[in-house]
Simulated assay, not measured.
Amino acid sequence: MKAVGFYLIYPILWIISRLPFPIVYVLSDFFYFITYYIIGYRKEIIKNNLRIAFPNKDEKEITRLAKKSTQHFCDIFIEMIKSMGMSKMSMKKRFLCKNPETVNAFAKAKRPLIVMFGHQASYEWTMVLDEVLDYKVYAIYKPLKNKRWNTLIVNIRKKFNSELVAMKEATAAMKESAEKEAALFALVADQSPMAGRAQYFTNFFNVPSAVFKGAERIAREHQTAVVFLRVTKVKRGYYETEFVNITTNGAETKDWQITDTFFQLLEEQIIKQPEYYLWSHKRWKSTLENTKHAVELSPRVQQ
Rank of each mutant, 00 (worst) to 15 (best):
A66I: 10
T171R: 01
F201N: 05
A195N: 07
S280R: 13
Q264R: 02
W256L: 02
E267W: 05
I46R: 00
V211M: 00
T171V: 10
F73E: 01
N206A: 08
Y135W: 02
S177I: 01
R283M: 08
E216Y: 11
N155T: 15
Y277M: 11
I76C: 12
P55E: 01
Y141E: 15
L288W: 05
V231F: 13
K175A: 08
P20D: 07
K158H: 11
K159L: 05
L133F: 02
N146D: 15
R51S: 06
F185P: 10
Q223L: 08
I81T: 07
I46K: 00
E252H: 10
D58L: 06
S162M: 12
N99W: 03
T126S: 14
T70A: 08
A173D: 04
V207L: 09
K110V: 08
T253Q: 01
M194W: 02
G214N: 05
L19D: 07
S162E: 08
F73G: 14
I246T: 14
L278M: 15
N161V: 07
Q269N: 14
Y276L: 02
K254I: 00
P208N: 00
D134N: 14
C74V: 06
K82E: 14
E252K: 03
P20H: 09
Y37C: 12
E216R: 01
T224Q: 07
V301W: 00
A225P: 01
E124T: 02
H72N: 06
M80F: 11
E275C: 10
R217N: 14
K175D: 04
S90Q: 12
K213H: 00
I258F: 06
T35A: 05
K272N: 12
T126K: 02
V301L: 05
T241S: 12
I52Y: 00
A3T: 15
P11T: 03
K213S: 06
N245S: 11
W125V: 15
L133V: 13
Q264L: 01
F117C: 14
K213I: 11
F106I: 11
P274N: 13
V165D: 01
A195H: 03
K272C: 04
T224C: 11
N206S: 09
N150V: 12
L19T: 02
K213E: 01
E176G: 08
A105Q: 05
L187N: 08
N203Y: 02
L164F: 14
M84N: 02
E101N: 12
Y7N: 13
R111Q: 15
P208R: 00
A198I: 00
V24A: 01
F160R: 10
M84R: 05
E59D: 13
K142N: 13
P20V: 13
M91T: 14
A189H: 04
A107I: 09
E124R: 01
S280N: 15
V234A: 13
K67E: 14
M1I: 08
G237K: 04
L229T: 09
N249W: 03
A198D: 04
I62V: 09
A139E: 01
V128W: 00
V165G: 10
E101L: 07
L297A: 04
S192H: 03
I246R: 03
E131N: 08
M194D: 09
E296H: 08
T287N: 03
K213W: 00
Q223P: 05
G214C: 00
Y10T: 07
K43Y: 02
S90I: 03
K2D: 13
V103N: 09
Q302P: 08
D255Y: 00
I15T: 12
G118K: 04
M86A: 13
E79M: 02
K43E: 03
V4R: 12
V226K: 09
